[in-house]
């Protein structure tokens, strides 16, 4: 069966949305952390911890929602350790985040083996209540009968997991919190000039901790999506660098929510196209190696960081532990 270009494009875009969802959630998590001045290298570990926690809880209790709750709790717990080390003990943020990523990448399979005894993974989530399955919105089936514009509704708007819609809502919500609320102003200020905030009598440590914990909540949702919506259970290293890719997207988006969203969609689109084009020769270019497309987002980010395209504007106080002056 040959699909029309229209159908192919719609299906590619639908795939893009699915691939982009964990990236978007994770990039938003990074947004809060980085804008408060705490390096967001811990996204990978928080996401992986949540993926394990949600899959384990869902496997044991048979409920995806409980899975979400446990997944988010695990991720927040990791965020709490991170903020204890980085914010309160003034530890090196990069080292702390890398340490936690490595610890979680070992701890999750260790606990999986000890608890479930099925190799280093959790049991597969086979029951529909254990997963966040795709939701079919009203009239989606009917609209399919008129492919144009019906497919846009049935494939792009309908037919996603509830977490996808949640992610879509969280982008404007995060932008609103960051730019329109007092808390958001403080988060941005503490990432630019913590001394100013301190002299205004606001606790730098408190704001940074809150930002890192929010980052934990969002990473938790991202990890839960991987294990209970995109996948059906936990397997080792299932985040596969998505936390770092989300950080790249955040940097690519110049630490701004909507631009980061755009970067996530762009990275997800290249990924979806790459999967689709595997081994298919393109006119003039020939077969594009899939590894090249995998490396493409990282290459683009490096080029952008080099300042060849635009000037990157990272938060000024990023990575610097705040020492109160006596």
């Amino acid at each position: 069966m040959t699909l029309s270009y229209y159908t192919v494009i719609i299906l590619l875009l639908a795939g893009t949305i699915r691939v982009a969802t964990p990236l978007i959630l994770s990039a938003l998590a990074g947004l809060f952390s980085e804008r408060s001045g705490v390096v967001a290298l811990g996204l990978e570990g928080m996401m992986l911890g949540a993926a394990f926690g949600s899959a384990a809880a869902s496997a044991i209790y048979g409920s995806a929602w409980l899975g979400l709750l446990v997944g988010v709790s695990v991720s927040v717990l990791i965020a709490a350790v991170l903020s204890f080390a980085c914010v309160f003990k003034k530890g090196n943020q990069v080292v702390a985040a890398i340490a936690l990523n490595i610890t979680i990448s070992g701890l999750a399979p260790t606990l999986a083996l000890a608890w479930f005894n099925q190799g280093n993974q959790t049991p597969g989530l086979t029951n529909s209540a254990q997963r966040f399955l795709e939701i079919t919105l009203p009239w989606a089936k009917v609209s399919r009968t008129h492919p144009f514009p019906g497919l846009i509704y049935s494939e792009l708007i309908s037919g996603h997991s509830v977490i996808v819609y949640l992610a879509a809502l969280l982008v404007p919500l995060s932008a609103f919190i960051l730019y329109k609320t007092r808390f958001g102003l403080r988060v941005r200020a503490v990432g630019e000039n913590p001394h100013a905030l301190d002299s205004a009598g606001i606790s730098v440590n408190k704001i940074r901790t809150q930002a890192v914990l929010i980052s934990g909540v969002l990473s938790g949702v991202a990890g839960t999506y991987l294990a209970t919506a995109a996948g059906a259970g936990f397997i080792p290293d299932m985040t596969a660098g998505k936390g770092y890719l989300a950080l790249a997207a955040l940097i690519f988006g110049n630490w701004k929510p909507y631009r980061a969203l755009g970067a996530c969609l762009l990275f997800a689109f290249t990924d979806t196209v790459a999967t689709r084009l595997q081994g298919v020769p393109l006119p003039l270019i020939g077969i594009i190696p899939v590894q090249f497309i995998i490396a493409l987002p990282y290459l683009m980010t490096v080029i952008l960081l080099a300042g060849f395209v635009a000037r990157p504007e990272p938060p000024k106080a990023i990575g610097v532990p705040y020492e109160k002056e006596n």
Binding site: G91, I102, T103, G106, P109, T110, L113, A114
Partner: peptide, 19 residues
Amino acid sequence: SHALVIVIQGLVILFCGAL
């Protein structure tokens, strides 16, 4: 699991490096 060694590595980095 084999992965327990990775946990110990991570904890060493955490305690010797960040904490």
